[in-house]
């Protein structure tokens, strides 16, 4: 509805609200690739990322958000990945990060 305008809007909450997020896709992704859960947030993937050094792309942040049920623009973000494989080379937990990028794209194309 359009009501009175006072020259400002009402900000929407920025918080990740786990209760209102639909975690089904996130759970599916973790079921297919449980190793993603072992990420310790070291940032090696993002540090070595070809795309991340030249664009806003942050692989670690995007997949962490996906795990919290925040899917918006994850697909577009993952499209920035060049699939060069460097991140997988450096991951200390041995996560198939390249596979994660592909999986997120496969699962979250609709978001």
């Amino acid at each position: 509805m359009s009501g009175l305008r006072f020259g400002y809007g009402i900000n929407r909450p920025r918080a990740i609200d786990i209760d209102s997020n639909d975690l089904r896709k996130s759970n599916e992704i973790l079921r297919e690739m449980p190793e993603l859960q072992t990420c310790i947030g070291c940032g090696s993937c993002t540090a070595s990322c070809t795309a991340g050094n030249l664009t806003e792309f942050n692989f670690r942040r995007v997949h962490t958000l996906v795990r919290r049920g925040e899917y918006r623009s994850a697909y577009e973000e993952m499209n920035k990945c060049m699939l060069c494989g460097k991140c997988r080379l450096v991951c200390p937990r041995g996560i198939n990060t390249r596979g994660v990028a592909m999986l997120i794209k496969r699962k979250l194309g609709d978001f």
Binding site: I16, D19, L65
Partner: peptide, 15 residues
């Protein structure tokens, strides 16, 4: 509960 998910830089809450 409320926290910050510091690795995404966003506040987080859940029941």
């Amino acid at each position: 509960i409320k926290a910050e998910d510091t690795l995404t830089g966003r506040p987080l809450r859940m029941s």
